[in-house]
Simulated assay, not measured.
Amino acid sequence: MFGKRKHTPQIDKDQLEILENAQRRVKQKKRLYLHFVLFLIGSVFLIIANTFLGIGKDITFFGKEWFVFAIIIWFFLLIYHVFNVFVTHKFMGKAWEQKQLEKLVSKQQERIEKLKANLVQEETLKLEREDLAEIQPKPTKKKSELTIIVAAAENNAIGKGNQLIWHLSDDLKRFKALTNAHHIIMGRKTFESFPKPLPNRTHVVITRQADYKVPDGVIVVNNLEDAIDASRNDVQPFIIGGGQIYEQALNLADKIELTRVHHDFEADTFFPEIDHSIWKETQNTFHQKDDNHDFEFSFITYERKL
């Protein structure tokens, strides 16, 4: 069960025919030799049985003892056997073998030529593909789209005492949906405003403090450039605050996802003014206040002008 599998050789049909024919001739010759030995022993036995033992001594055909006809019949059978082995062998002998050999050589030559042709074709296709690859521009890795996400009042207020000033359920849901499975870049104070790291996001914290302690999985850097570099494998890392980080990122970001709360608030942290000569508004969805939202607000998307 666990032994090595026996290799079964693949034999060409013509080669198999030659082999089977040779085996048949060997068997025929062996039978002929046995026939000849039996003929001699049988002939001697018949002569002794009739002459010395008197078996069938009175039986004659055409004036001859019966064993003479038995020996003649057996002899003719022997002659037929010899003919079958040696005379027939001439028709399938060396000339036939040579013909079969030539046929095999011819087939092998055809196969070799076909293999050569296929090899040349494959090499040609390979060279053509290499030439085409050199001509065609290599695909470039998609650039990360650095996105600022922020909720700001009409007077650009975003927080007070390191806390949000309002609670908008749909805004929190939007923040979660957009940042899920992405890197979120923030300052130390913003990170400390969370009870614990947000699930399914990679936190990148910017701080000047040496040996700043963070939970496993949180990345600590010293400046915004290093934070962006740490997020280079993310197609859309997000800047989530606070005020100083937003101000630095505004010159580097590609997109702004803004929740504009239509009210003015007292605050100690503000979002920078958006320069509409640099940013174009591409989407705006207004939400009225309701039982779950104390203020009217809009979801606005800005993209940097080319």
Rank of each mutant, 00 (worst) to 15 (best):
L32G: 00
F76R: 01
D229S: 09
K255A: 04
L46A: 11
I73G: 08
T207L: 11
W66T: 00
A267R: 05
L16Y: 11
I240N: 04
E266W: 02
L16G: 06
K57Q: 14
H263N: 13
F39Y: 08
E225R: 11
N155T: 07
I184C: 07
I72A: 05
N223R: 04
Q108W: 09
H183M: 10
F297E: 00
K4W: 10
D229H: 10
F86E: 00
H89V: 00
L46W: 09
S193N: 06
E130D: 14
F52Q: 12
V105K: 14
L306G: 10
F75W: 08
Y80F: 14
F36P: 01
D170W: 03
K305W: 04
S106W: 07
I48D: 12
P272S: 08
I59S: 11
D171R: 05
M1C: 12
Q10T: 08
K116V: 14
K196N: 07
G54R: 13
E17V: 08
R25Y: 00
L16Q: 14
G42I: 00
I240A: 04
L53W: 15
F295E: 03
S277Y: 03
L250T: 03
H276L: 15
V37E: 06
K27S: 01
D171C: 10
R129E: 11
I149M: 13
F194T: 09
H287S: 10
L224T: 03
T269Y: 01
H262V: 02
F295P: 00
F194W: 13
A249H: 05
D211R: 11
V205G: 07
Y212M: 10
F191Q: 09
E303D: 07
H89E: 00
K142Q: 10
H81C: 05
G56C: 06
R232M: 05
P195M: 11
F271H: 02
K4T: 00
F286M: 08
F299W: 07
A70C: 10
F238Y: 14
T147G: 05
L16P: 01
E17Q: 07
L168E: 01
Q136G: 04
H89W: 01
F45M: 12
F299Y: 13
I158R: 03
D170A: 15
K126H: 13
K94I: 01
H183P: 02
F76L: 13
L115I: 14
D275S: 05
N180Q: 13
V26S: 05
P199L: 12
V82T: 03
E247C: 02
K90E: 04
W166M: 02
G187R: 02
A181I: 04
K143L: 09
E225P: 03
K305Q: 13
A157I: 01
P237M: 09
E303A: 03
P237I: 06
I274T: 01
V150W: 02
Q23M: 03
Q28K: 00
D226A: 13
S43M: 09
I112K: 03
E247H: 11
L115K: 09
L168T: 01
G56H: 09
I11C: 06
L178Y: 14
Q109C: 06
V120R: 11
K126I: 08
P139A: 08
